[in-house]
C-alpha cells in the first residue's frame, strides 16, 4: 500500500538554526498519526513545510505517491492536504456559513466560479449545513466570525479544514484553549471522518493523543527521536525522559 504522506530527508534551516533535521516520515493511508515533542521540537515547522508555507532547504515531500515539494500552498490544498492552525486563521469579515461553503467549494476547484451565486453550489451548501450543525455552529452561522467567542472560532477553524474533504488532514493543536469537555467532542468528530482520510495530529494533551492515535512520532530538536505504536511510545523510557517526564 502506498503511503498517504511521506517525507524524505527533509531539512529546514533558518540561518544557523536547524529547525527540521533530516526528517523522513511515512504515514499510511487512513492512519491516525500523532506528532509529539517538547516545545521548539519543530512540529509546526514540519507542518508548514508539508503545507507549503515554508520551502524546505532540502529533502522531498510526497503526497499520495506524487512529489509536491515544488508546489505552492494552494496547489497542495487542491491535492487534498488541509490543515488547521495553532492560532486561528479565519476571515474576520465573513460568516461561518460563507467560510465553510467557500472551503468546500475551493477544495473542489470552484473558487473561481464567478457566474453564479455561491448559494447555487448545492454540494458545498449542503456539506456546510451538515458541518455547522455537527460543530454546534448552526445558530451563529450568519454572524461575523470576528464577533464569535473564541471557542466557536476554534470549532470553525477545524470545520473549515474538514469541509475541504481532505485526503490528508493536519491538525496543529486543535484542542488548544478548548475546555476539557469540548476537546473530546472535537476529537470524536475527527475520528468519525471516513476511514481513508489520513490524520496527523499535533497535541500536547497525552490523554487525547493516546486515545486517538494509532502511531506516534516523537520529534526532538527538529529530528525524529523515535516512532512507534501507542503502547511502544507509552512504554519507552527514553520518551518518558525527554518528554513525558517533563509534564
Amino acid at each position: 500500500m502506498t503511503a498517504a504522506l511521506e517525507t524524505h530527508g527533509l531539512v529546514k534551516r533558518f540561518g544557523g538554526l536547524v529547525a527540521t533535521n533530516d526528517v523522513s516520515l511515512s504515514v499510511g493511508k487512513g492512519a491516525r498519526h500523532a506528532l509529539i515533542g517538547p516545545n521548539g521540537a519543530g512540529k509546526t515547522t514540519l507542518i508548514n513545510l508539508l503545507t507549503g508555507v515554508l520551502a524546505p532547504t532540502s529533502g522531498r515531500i510526497v503526497v499520495g505517491g506524487k512529489d509536491v515539494t515544488g508546489l505552492t500552498a494552494h496547489q497542495r490544498a487542491r491535492r487534498g492536504i488541509a490543515r488547521t492552525f495553532q492560532i486561528n486563521q479565519l476571515f474576520p469579515d465573513m460568516t461561518p456559513l460563507e467560510t465553510v461553503v467557500l472551503a468546500h467549494a475551493a477544495a473542489h476547484g470552484r473558487a473561481g466560479t464567478f457566474w453564479q451565486p455561491a448559494s447555487r453550489e448545492r454540494a458545498s451548501v449542503e456539506r456546510a449545513g451538515e458541518l455547522l450543525s455537527r460543530f454546534g455552529l448552526a445558530d451563529v452561522m450568519s454572524r461575523r466570525v470576528s464577533s464569535l467567542p473564541y471557542g466557536k472560532q476554534r470549532l470553525l477553524e477545524i470545520a473549515v479544514a474538514i469541509a475541504a474533504d481532505p485526503q490528508v488532514l493536519l491538525l496543529d493543536e486543535p484542542a488548544a484553549g478548548v475546555p476539557e469537555d469540548e476537546r473530546h467532542e472535537i476529537l470524536s468528530i475527527v475520528e468519525s471522518l471516513p476511514a481513508d482520510v489520513t490524520v496527523v495530529l499535533i497535541e500536547h494533551d497525552m490523554d487525547l493523543v493516546f486515545s486517538f492515535a494509532g502511531r506516534i512520532t516523537v520529534l526532538v530538536g527538529g529530528a525524529v527521536f523515535t516512532e512507534g505504536s501507542v503502547a511502544e511510545i507509552a512504554a519507552n523510557p527514553d520518551v518518558r525522559r525527554v518528554y513525558l517526564g517533563e509534564g
Binding site: 476571515f91 455561491a118 448559494s119
Partner: peptide, 28 residues
Amino acid sequence: LVIASPFGLSLRAIRGNRLRAAHLGIGT
C-alpha cells in the same frame, strides 16, 4: 453577481487572511 459567487467569497477571504485563503486551495 460576481460578489455573490464563490469567486466573490474568495476575494473576501483573500482580503481577510491571504495565508488561510491559499490553504483552502484558492489561487490568490
